[in-house]
């Protein structure tokens, strides 16, 4: 595997406001192919807004965003698989209904792979959404997302609501389905549990990038884990 520095995502001077609050404030970032990126920041730092822009769900922003050389359009939507941090299926649905929906909706969706992941995560296609715990729902949504043969995966808090044992399972799933020719962006505020899978970390605070570095270089330079660094950078915010 060689180092590949092709730019996959290019974000230049993006600002997105909700009323008088700026969720993203002159935000710029360049991400290259073949990496797993940790997007780290406390709640309300702009992670979800950024990911929704990349997924093509928010359009009214200023600045420029391109993925694989295209501004956000049907092409970018076709190569981006997005895992939302909020459930989006109606409660009456069963797992198999969700799978059917994805199958109809995405041409790159691999039903067999999805069934395999569902089984691996000890879920059952006949389970209904309303009978499932938060953790089970998250695993289900991850299976749907990872079963797409996408180039870019955008995962918003994939381990947010699950217990530590399930976190390992989710990390396994992410690692074994990672496409080395693509790009994976994972947001989290639970840095400790997942930092070992990141190539690069992007720390964001109040809508701007504080730091964008190679994770191993940071550990080597500072003799501390990314989690310790995260706590150091954001400690003051926690008490505000």
């Amino acid at each position: 595997m060689s180092e590949n520095n092709d730019v996959m995502i290019q974000i230049d001077h993006v600002t997105k406001s909700y009323g008088s609050t700026k969720a993203l404030d002159d935000f710029s970032l360049q991400l290259s192919t073949g990496k797993i990126i940790g997007l780290l920041g406390p709640n309300g730092s702009g992670k979800t807004t950024l990911m929704k822009i990349l997924a093509g769900l928010i359009h009214d922003y200023c600045g420029s965003v391109t993925i694989d050389g295209h501004t956000i359009d049907p092409y970018t939507k076709s190569i981006v698989a997005y895992l939302s941090d909020e459930p989006y299926f109606p409660k009456w649905m069963k797992i198999r209904d969700g799978i059917r929906l994805y199958h109809d909706f995405y041409t790159d969706f691999d039903v067999e792979k999805c069934m395999h992941l569902i089984k691996q995560m000890e879920l059952d296609p006949n389970m209904s959404i309303k009978s499932m715990s938060k953790g089970m729902n998250e695993k289900f949504l991850l299976a749907l997302c990872m079963a797409r043969n996408a180039l870019v995966y955008i995962l918003d808090e994939p381990i947010g609501g699950v217990d530590p044992a399930a976190r390992e399972e989710i990390m396994e799933t992410i690692l074994s389905n990672y496409n080395p020719n693509g790009l994976m962006v994972i947001s989290t505020h639970l840095v400790k549990d997942i930092e070992r899978i990141f190539d690069e970390v992007v720390l964001i605070k109040q809508g701007s990038v504080v730091l964008h570095r190679n994770a191993e270089e940071l550990r080597e330079e500072r003799n501390q884990s990314i989690d310790d660094l995260f706590v150091e950078v954001f400690r003051h915010d926690a008490f505000n």
Partner: peptide, 18 residues
């Protein structure tokens, strides 16, 4: 393989490559 080792250690494949 790189992929298997990445899974065994629970790390990014690029870390294994290094």
């Amino acid at each position: 393989s790189v992929r298997e080792l990445a899974s065994i250690y629970g790390v990014n494949p690029n870390t294994i490559v290094k």
